[in-house]
Amino acid sequence: MKYRSAFDIIGPIMIGPSSSHTAGAARIGRVARTLFERQPRKAVISFYGSFAKTYKGHGTDLAIVAGLLDFDTFDERIPDSLKIAEQSGMEVIFKTEDAVPDHPNTVKINLYDGDIQLEVIGISIGGGTIEITEINSFKLKLSGDPAILVIHEDRFGIISSVTSILAKYQINIGHMEVARKEKGETAIMVIEVDQKIEDKIIEELKKLQNVTRVIRMVE
């Protein structure tokens, strides 16, 4: 089921005018920032489908940038986000793409800070609910639920080490996905869980051999 909570339907509390094109966009921006683990110096935002056609009218541009600034969907600074980004030294470039995406509300966000780069593709599926469909060319499905992302070297036994730690803390996994580009290279694990994950669990996961990064997603 795409929607799990009553608050996906009644909510979010947000700055208008569009839940998919404003609130959802802000959430995608914020997830991208969380994945990047810092405020980017430069962001290239490419809009597809309905986003490309109407992003100005809905303030989708303002909302994505607000998300990159770590603002929530009801932050009254959203209408001023472009100015705030400029003041805080974040360069923003908007592009519109003609390619027809799988979902009409699709955005690709490329973030840069020196040598560090990240590419995130997100879709806004309605009512402020979002999914991340691609991270650095890894195809996956990450929704707004509590989740962790584990980036690791593709070696045997890592998945079981990670899930063992979650089991030890009685964290129930609702959905899990693993992806890699080539055998033996970098791989990624997306684990959606039912409970909130505490810092000590994240720290323990980070200490595992061959685990490069562990990122906790914000709701």
Binding site: I9, I10, G11, I15, G16, G126, G128
Partner: peptide, 11 residues
């Protein structure tokens, strides 16, 4: 661009 609660969407 004021504060509202989406039910089910903002529109």
């Amino acid at each position: 661009m004021g504060i509202i609660c989406a039910t089910p969407t903002a529109g």
